[in-house]
């Protein structure tokens, strides 16, 4: 069985700061990494590999220095990783990203299973899995929290709002994994060292027979402006005193804010 895992080299959104005056987003110095959900997609693939016989290939549309992060995924148990150089530096319309990924997985075909996170850590727009399923004409098992493959049939639990749905489908298929469903393993030093010898590729758009012009063509919007959301909270802090005293201070504060009223309206 061949499993292709799709990951993004995402920005760590918790590290994005907003200029309180200009509302500008301060993007320089924001660290990038393979997000937890995407690592969960790799974890899901590696568990399937351990349960049966599979090769796991990772594909990332990102900057060349994402190759370093690919080593972590190889250490987790992936067999080969490929970075396709992203001329948009992470800001492309998902419609365009989908075309690149589609071209890449067609180059890697035949495959049995495509696995991705339900959403990227930074874009968080839930698009790649559904769009790929649509373009490739494959079934999509979205928000999977458990997956098993037996004799070419995938069984999965889907984590939905109202409950958990168990489904089965014949491969090939696309799976998107749910948040927090597959906790990525910690790798040993030995695994990390072995990962250094596993193959990685850096592809250009030309390597998947695409051009920047084609991608511009399928891009469906332009960003007019981006601003940060400025939080204007009072940020009072009560600490280091008696619990009852802090409780009273909190209550007094809430009375002052007209959230609470004291006895006799005081």
């Amino acid at each position: 069985m061949k499993i292709v895992v799709l990951v993004k080299y995402s920005m760590d959104v918790a590290e994005i700061r907003v200029d309180p005056v200009s509302q500008a987003l301060r993007m320089s110095g924001v660290p990038r990494r393979i997000g937890d959900v995407d690592k969960g997609a790799v974890e899901a693939a590696v568990r399937l590999k351990e349960a049966g016989d599979a090769t796991v290939e990772v594909v990332c549309f990102g900057p060349p220095n994402a190759l370093g992060a690919m080593k972590d995924l190889l250490a987790m148990g992936a067999d080969v990783a490929t970075v396709i150089e992203d001329p948009y530096d992470g800001a492309a319309d998902a419609a365009a990203v989908t075309r690149v990924i589609e071209a890449a997985v067609n180059k890697l075909a035949p495959f049995d299973l495509l696995i991705c996170g339900f959403a990227s850590d930074d874009g968080y727009s839930y698009q790649i899995g559904p769009r790929l399923a649509e373009r490739l004409g494959l079934p999509l098992v979205s928000y999977a929290s458990e997956v098993n493959v037996d004799d070419g049939v995938l069984a999965a639990d889907r984590d939905l709002e109202a409950g958990v749905q168990t489904v089965s489908v014949r491969l090939p298929a696309v799976v998107s994994v749910a948040e927090e469903a597959f906790v990525p393993r910690t790798v040993t030093l030995l695994q990390a060292m072995k990962a250094q010898k596993k193959p990685t590729n850096l592809w250009s758009l030309a390597d998947v027979s695409m051009t920047r012009e084609e991608l511009d063509e399928v891009t469906t919007y332009s960003a007019l402006k981006e601003t940060g959301i400025v939080v204007n909270r009072q940020q009072n802090v009560l600490k280091d005193s008696d619990l009852a005293e802090m409780a009273d201070q909190l209550i007094d504060w809430l009375i002052n804010e007209q959230v609470l009223v004291g006895k006799d309206g005081a």
Binding site: M11, V13, I16, V18, L25, D121, D122, G123, Y124, T219, T220, Y221, S222, A223, L224, K225, E226, T227, G228, I229
Partner: peptide, 18 residues
């Protein structure tokens, strides 16, 4: 055009659609 939450809600982007 629309303003949409960006970077998981850290910011807002205004897009013009084609």
């Amino acid at each position: 055009s629309a303003s949409c939450m960006l970077y998981a809600g850290t910011g807002l982007a205004t897009y013009r659609f084609s």
